[in-house]
Design a protein around this nucleic acid. Sequence first.
DNA 1: GACGCGCTACTAGTCTTGTCGTAGATTGAC
DNA 2: GTCAATCTACGACAAGACTAGTAGCGCGTC
Lengths: 140, 140
Amino acid sequence: MKQSVRLTKLELAIMNAFWRMGAASVREVQDSLPGKKRPAYTTVQTVVYRLEEKGALRKVKRIGNAYVFEPAITREAAQRRLIDDLLDLLDGSTRPLMAHLMDSGKLSLDDLREIEDRLKRQEAGKTEGAPRGGRKAGAK
Amino acid sequence: MKQSVRLTKLELAIMNAFWRMGAASVREVQDSLPGKKRPAYTTVQTVVYRLEEKGALRKVKRIGNAYVFEPAITREAAQRRLIDDLLDLLDGSTRPLMAHLMDSGKLSLDDLREIEDRLKRQEAGKTEGAPRGGRKAGAK
DNA sequence: GACGCGCTACTAGTCTTGTCGTAGATTGAC
DNA sequence: GTCAATCTACGACAAGACTAGTAGCGCGTC
């Protein structure tokens, strides 16, 4: 049941292009990469193909002799995987994470307020019915 | 001025052993690794040597014919690097991070309260002098 | 002083990621 | 139908990480 895919830096940069553009050809993706880190066409091509193998992209059609790909996973899922991997490395504890975010000024009070609101809504919302088959334990 | 070292999963597992034990020999580290993921002695040895080259460990003495190593970087510094790398991948935004932590129930309201308090104290303490443009983060 | 054990030092193979080139196929334009 | 442009398909290679084996040295023991 592992549908989540681990992406490397370059793979993520390329996926970002797809999430931004929806569906695109290798050429379009390469053109869209910011100048400084724009690899050769075939480099982008190789990574796109690898992403397809990994299940992060899928071919949707051809235009001319070129394939058009689109994302097969959401940005959220990919980010989730990234974060879970990090938490795993941190032994599952969010403490060092939060501590560092605060120390480095990456978390503002406003950010916190927003999160707090959301968390409250979440807690409130989950006591009423609609179990939303999310992550029930039983999953074989 | 780059003193921070990027650690991989195995390297981190080994550093964790050192942070836990203080100073140790390769043998001690290997023995301390949890059974499931205990690599061969020479594998641990190779990684320990690599960590020394990277500056994450240093030799402190010999006991018998064996070297004893100790951490040359703190766990906090290593974790900081991990987190900064992640933020880099997330385009510097903490939003998806916080959102996922909440969704997966890794952040409680209590956690948030604590963080909020700390953040407030921090802000109060820094209004004097240093302007520190909050999140501009850029700092190459 | 000889022996064996454990440790170091070195070597080596495999995998992943990033990088790109080349050959050949396809296509649109004439 | 021919041609040039553009893609795909495939191969290659370097670096880094992970994995582990082997050779040989040194230390403690008898």
